[in-house]
Design a protein around this nucleic acid. Structure first.
Length: 479
RNA sequence: GCGGCCAUCGUUCAAUGGUAGGACAUUGGGUUGUGGUCCCAAGAAUGAGGGUUCGAUUCCCUCUGGUCGCCCCA
């Protein structure tokens, strides 16, 4: 019976559906056409109603997650200080050109992922997709070339990339970035790794792998690029269509392709290391020696080229392996960019830097249950009852603060029961209660929340009494 | 940018082609000014828009968002 009904219904539906669907499709097409040809502005969600939702790939970082962020910020600041970095903040918005010229016009980041717009004044600008370009701009603009070398800059803030979000990948994410200008010695390269290692250790993140490679000087890189282009030209017809434009424009992207067919071809391609000149090779080997000396494990990764064009010589990427899925996720990376500053119109100035993705650090910390920075919790609750007491409560609260006693309260509530319930939930050790009587007598009640006992003390002895009581409770707890 | 999966109170988990239910959380209360446990009560959700249907949260489509894989990266 039921079967019969369903089939009948389904059949009926199917007929109706197809016709309706087809009709609808046509209507939609017409609507699209008119929208395209007509002068009417494209309708967007935000014009219709207030959409109470974050934009795709953007998110709120709520109080509960903040302790992790605070922990990361503290570690970054500490390490920056230890290694002599000065903080720099640059604007989120820069001329689009700055990024196109520094990062490279044929890179994924610039081609597909940049937030660009024209200002009211007609400037073509972009939200920064990374931090180094702005730092380099600032370096040149403020004549830092004449500052004592090396110039070490630390920056931290949001960057924007319009790609498709998933876990640990957002359109707005936060990076911490360290850049050093004016030193070409490979020991700096190793020091960058050391700093990254220090940060990750301080955050409790394990299963980290440092992948390192050298892509040579701009000159050898250009030569290597030509070699690769020549090589891949031979396989043009065997390569999937989407890779073909890269042959001329950016053959490095074919080298690190994960597509097995492409990887098979790429395996035969000229090696980056073989293409290096003597100087680059010496630099890289020295760098590795320093890493050995530091005792930091690394993986030499021939396929590592980095997605940004400005890199020269040393490049590295920091991966973390997920203990459950065995999937690896990039936490950050960096490398030398010895020619970028000159290329951007500044002095000939070697530089090196690296960045870490804070969102991913936090994600990792949460996954492994790393401890986060805990904000100090109040141990005292101030409760009030009656008009007069309520009036005195604000001043009393300020007194406690001034004495360094972190205090919770719930002044908006009138009834004592509710306030003490709140105090209990806040996990405080002491409640201070001021009622009508106490307010008149100028006294307060101190209640030991752990034992339930309480005493009345004169208001001017309150601070001392609270401190003593807290001390006693701590003592008892230790035993 | 491509493909797959998913979408129910603040959170989490149910259920159904016919009034969407619990738990946790929240708020109020359990007689005058005393917390924890407990009891009572209240508010609170089918992401949006269309379609099929007498009736859709359930079936279909589009959009939005999330998520996974690819791409790329942090």
């Amino acid at each position: 019976m039921a079967v019969k009904k369903t089939t009948k219904k389904a059949a009926k539906k199917a007929v109706k559906k197809t016709t309706k669907k087809a009709a609808k499709k046509i209507i939609r097409k017409m609507a699209m056409k008119s929208a395209r040809t007509g002068s009417a502005k494209k309708k967007t969600r935000s014009e219709d109603v207030v959409v109470l939702q974050t934009l795709r790939g953007m998110r709120d970082i709520l109080p509960s997650e903040q302790p992790y962020w605070e922990q990361v910020r503290r570690v970054f600041n500490k390490v920056a200080q230890e290694y002599g970095f000065g903080r720099i903040d640059t604007p989120l918005v820069e001329f689009e050109n700055l990024f196109v010229r520094s990062v490279g016009s044929k890179t994924e980041v610039i081609e597909k992922e940049m937030y660009t717009f024209v200002t009211r004044g007609g400037d073509k600008v972009a939200l920064r997709p990374e931090l180094t370009a702005g730092n380099v701009r600032a370096f040149v603009q403020h004549g830092m070339a004449v500052w004592p070398k090396p110039v070490k800059l630390f920056s931290m803030g949001p960057v924007y990339r319009y790609d498709r979000p998933q876990e640990g990948r957002y359109r707005e994410h936060f990076q911490g970035n360290f850049d050093v200008y004016g030193e070409s010695d490979p020991i700096l390269d190793a020091q960058m790794i050391q700093m990254a290692d220090r940060i990750l250790r301080a955050l409790g993140i394990k299963n980290v792998a440092f992948h390192v490679n050298s892509i040579g000087t701009a000159k050898t890189r250009a030569a290597y690029k030509r070699k690769l282009t020549t090589f891949f030209e031979k396989y043009r017809r065997k390569l999937p269509a989407e890779f073909r434009p890269f042959i001329k424009e950016n053959p490095f992207r074919i080298v690190d392709a994960k597509d097995p067919d492409v990887a098979a071809i790429a395996a035969e391609a000229p090696r980056a290391f073989d293409a290096l000149d003597d100087e680059s090779r010496a630099h890289f080997e020295k760098f590795l020696e320093y890493l050995d000396e530091l005792g930091i494990a690394y993986v030499r990764d021939d396929t590592l080229v980095r997605g940004l064009d400005y890199y020269t010589q040393t490049v590295f990427e920091i991966y973390v392996k997920d203990s459950e899925t065995a999937k690896r996720r990039s936490l950050g990376g960096g490398g030398r960019y010895d020619t970028l500053i000159k290329m951007m119109g500044g002095d000939d100035m070697p530089a090196i830097g690296f960045g870490l993705g804070i969102d991913r650090l936090v994600l990792e910390m949460k996954k492994i249950g790393a401890k986060s920075y805990q904000l100090p919790q109040p141990r005292v609750f101030l409760a009030q009852l009656g008009d007069l007491a309520k009036k005195k409560s604000l001043a009393t609260f300020a007194e406690l603060q001034k004495a360094g006693i972190l205090t919770a309260e719930s002044f908006g509530r009138g009834n004592l029961r509710a306030q003490l319930r709140k105090a209990e939930r806040a996990g405080v050790d002491v409640a201070i209660i001021i009622g009508q009587k106490e307010a008149l007598d100028d006294t307060v009640i101190l209640k030991d929340m752990t034992s339930g006992s309480q005493e009345t003390v004169p208001h001017d002895k309150m601070i001392a009494a609270v401190k003593k009581l807290l001390k006693n409770i701590s003592k008892v707890r230790e035993k």
